[in-house]
């Protein structure tokens, strides 16, 4: 079980650090990190899964006060 926790932590750190690198790339260029990866290796993106909404987010619902 401890191994599982270590692995989950390692994976979380890996994903978050990868994303932080991505955010740095975002600051430098208007093209997103993923767009650059896909331009470099289109086959990888073609076979990539499309889970968890693919990074897309819904708009925040407007509060009644705003309406």
């Amino acid at each position: 079980m401890k191994k599982g926790i270590k692995l989950a932590l390692f994976s979380a750190i890996t994903v978050l650090s990868g994303s932080t690198v991505a955010s740095e790339a975002e600051k430098v260029s208007s093209t997103s990190f993923i767009d650059e990866v896909c331009a470099f290796a289109p086959l990888v993106c073609m076979v990539s899964t499309h889970e968890n909404g693919g990074g897309f987010e819904p708009e925040k619902p407007k509060s009644k006060k705003e309406d």
């Binding site: 975002e26 993923i34 990539s48 909404g53 693919g54 990074g55 987010e57």
Partner: peptide, 23 residues
């Protein structure tokens, strides 16, 4: 908080993880 950094992490992190899964 709704920070821009977390929005970027979400937007880029999920496709990045999907690519890692495929690899």
């Amino acid at each position: 908080i709704d920070s821009e950094l977390m929005a970027i992490i979400y937007r880029e992190g999920i496709p990045f993880a999907n690519i890692v899964i495929a690899i």
